[in-house]
Design a protein around this nucleic acid. Sequence first.
RNA 1: GGAGGGGUCGCAUAGUGGUCUAGUGCGCCGUCUUGGAAAGGCGGUAUAGGGGCAACUCUAUCGAGGGUUCAAAUCCCUCUCCCUCCGCCA
Length: 432
Amino acid sequence: MLDIQFVRDNAELVAKKSKQKGYDVDVEQLLGFDRERRELLQQVEDLRRQRNELSSQTKGQKPSDEQVKAGRDIKDKLAKLEHQLAAIDKEFVELLKQVPNMPLDDVPVGSSEDENQVAKKVGESPKFDFEPKNHAQIAEAKGWLDKERAAKVTGARFAYIKGDLVQLQFAIIQFVLSKLTDQSFLDEVIKENSLEISNKPFVPVLPPLMLRTDVYDAMDRLEPRDDRYKIEGEELWLQGSAEHVLGSMHADEILSESDLPVRYIGYATSFRREAGSYGKDMEGMFRMHQFDKLEMESLTDGDSGLQEHLFLIAIQEKLMQLLGIPYQVLHKCTADIGKPNARGVDIEAWLPGQGKYRETHTADYMTDYQARRLKTRVKRGDGRIELVHTNDATALALSRTPIAIIENYQTKDGNINIPEALKPFMATRPAV
RNA sequence: GGAGGGGUCGCAUAGUGGUCUAGUGCGCCGUCUUGGAAAGGCGGUAUAGGGGCAACUCUAUCGAGGGUUCAAAUCCCUCUCCCUCCGCCA
């Protein structure tokens, strides 16, 4: 949620930038509710003051008939006004919640994901002296992926992942954890990218995979609800990404400045209904209802929020480089960064089997927009209380990273090589 | 799933309808005393919102939301979280 004071001071800008993100917000109406709300609030507070004065006059004695009558009078007026205020306030908050975060100035303006900009391409796509297969062909032939049996049990977009592919997944997990908890690795990334930021290591977290409706809504990631799984009979949802449960961890807290940056590397199974993507990416395990993911989440002060965002992207890139997967970095345009985002970057890995770059990572920078509703704050050294800035970013997605490895490292005889960086973490090797 | 007990200021506690503008202790900050410190004295110590150029002031918040009442930390209802015991379970 935006700060209403910011909206008051920048009405035109808010209208314009909201529109750039594809949100048609009636800022005039919002400010009208704001004025009305404040007027009523003053009247209500004045009546409450009168009530407090009246009841403190009685000092333990029985009130006189006159006092009771005056009190009753205040009570009636107050009830009426409070009712009005609650109604206005509800509309006001609803409208304010609809205003998206303001994109930073360097976010390209665009009306659909087609206007995302390729910032750079890294790595050479591998040359094959044979026709490269896609991951589904390889994995199914190897017995690593069984979707037919999964269909019996759960329906479409689920799979049994088996054998060496499981080993690969666990190796990736260990690889990521070993890097993100290693200060010297972070120092290297900071140095290579000339960042000015803490080298505090990430804390590994296994978060709960469900969260409450109100918390999900406060994170501003519940919508569209059609894409979420609701637990029947409970105010609980299956999380769609570890950031949903990591970012909300410190809701309603005032952190001390020395706690920052808070950095988590979470490992969680994510669930998505994939509503509206019927028939898309049905082959293999590219788009599933359930997939595991390693996700970075950071809470920082406002001064270092943007640096943190760049840092998380630099980590994403470094991990991809270590794995030797060719990729491109995409600056998402205003229409594609998402409602709470101020800036968003995707990384797309080269998939030889598809002959395309496909999304494997996202990095989201929310400034203080998410923290405002979560009430996650920090007490600065000078005593001021500020909202934290939130950042999240995929470290590596499981299913899509293995897909990229399978397709880029495939051999003519249908085996795959293991990237050097993962070899120390493999319990067994699929092939050489 | 069943039974019971709880949630009050950073922490620990007091508070069973008006004297709560929430007391006390600890912690923390400032200050006095001191050569310096300890001890002690004094003062301060939450969050959110409204009004005001400001000093300041008003309102709300005792887990959350409703209700009763002229008046609610206190009474009633619903929810939530924690603890204990039983059952079940990895």
